[in-house]
Design a protein around this nucleic acid. Structure first.
Lengths: 217, 217
DNA sequence: TAGATTGTTAATCGATTAACAATC
DNA sequence: TAGATTGTTAATCGATTAACAATC
């Protein structure tokens, strides 16, 4: 029933979505594909093509797309119309920064807990002066995931030597999506299917920047 | 002279590069395109096609590619054969985490300094118990960049309300590449050319994960 | 030698762009 | 009405895959 949408389309749709978030237009106003081109950099032809492909045909000639309806449609495509709970493994600087990351909130991504081996980081409910989610000891991970079977995604901010072992463990516990920030490329074992791993999204973006800047010099 | 290499190719090349880093093979050993397919997930056909396109023709039939030579070729393509200095604006948790990020090191990306408005974060040279680069007051940014004109890239970890103003300022100071971690999509002003901005690489990867996991459910 | 693996061309596939009739 | 903008088809473009001769 659901057609497979390529990740390129998903990426562009996320641009459209972000643009609407950012523009803060009244719900009942209209936005045209040309206007969307201005703010997203994606051509109006491409935008209409995407909408056509996605079955979004809510446009009105001469006006464009009603902001609220378009927003809802895009939400559905991105599957962010429901809240997504995730956990963070590793409660160091990066881990805590992630748990406060605001763009997660607008996307309905919710860091429910962090886990770490270091006793001194553990803080059940007291806030430690930040908006960080509660930090638990890693030994409690097993029990926690049993109690929260809906959690399917984990963000890994671990040292490189413990990242792969943690990945293996997480998969056994039912985690199906990993964003790995450890400075090591992780791979799912051969036999495991349906696991999504994104390695080092930070570094990948820098490759691109470095390439584009120094290439033109 | 230089042909324009698409970002897709760059991305795959970064996979090959990471794979070589990770495998830690002896410099004088050989690796075949089939073996590279195993560790990168990119088909051997694609790999050879990429090498052909990039003018990397150092393969030996029946053996493959000499690890050291291939490594050097890939380095050249990725332009990471020289050290790239970058600065970080915003010395909060995320900023400090970035300055210690190990995958930057293997890529010759070097965080030389952080800048922040908060007086209490400033630490000229003393280390504060971490491997964080020195933190300066934002007022010193201007002078610092004058003294280090080779710095072309800045990572932004600022609150959303100050990010756009900082972007404008950085461009005036000669910065040409921005990786923006602020929870707001930034855009270069119309008239400015040759600026590369990557917004929210962290969130973008999560969109993909969320989509792939919950789509299949 | 026979088998393995490259470099390179050709075929296929998919994504983007262009164009325009329909119509608000 | 005339102008603007959609939805949709067709044309173009680029990227991937397949195939295989060359040869170590």
């Amino acid at each position: 029933m659901k057609k497979k949408i390529s990740l390129r389309v998903i990426k562009r749709v996320s641009f459209y979505y972000e643009a609407l978030l950012k523009l803060c237009l009244p719900d009942d106003s209209y936005i045209s594909s040309m206007k969307l081109e201005e703010v997203t950099g994606v051509s109006s032809n491409q935008i209409r093509q995407d909408f056509f492909y996605l079955g979004i045909s809510i446009g009105k000639q001469k006006k464009g797309y009603q902001v609220k309806r378009l927003f809802n449609e895009l939400k559905k495509v991105l599957l962010v119309d429901k809240k997504v709970d995730v956990i963070v493994i590793g409660a160091g600087r990066l881990g805590c920064a992630l748990s406060e990351y605001k763009l997660f909130k607008v996307r309905n991504i919710n860091v429910v807990a962090l886990f770490d081996v270091k006793e001194e980081l553990i803080s059940k409910s007291e806030d430690k002066g930040s908006h960080c989610a509660p930090i638990y000891h890693i030994d409690e991970l097993d029990g926690f995931l049993s109690e929260h079977p809906a959690i399917k995604i984990a963000l890994l901010t671990l040292p490189e030597n413990s990242a792969q072992a943690m990945l293996d463990k997480l998969m056994k516990l039912g985690i199906r999506g990993i964003v790995n920030f450890a400075p090591k490329i992780l791979k799912a074992p051969e036999h495991v299917k349906n696991i999504q791993i994104v390695n080092d999204c930070i570094g990948a973006s820098l490759y691109k920047i470095v390439y584009q800047i120094y290439n033109k010099a």
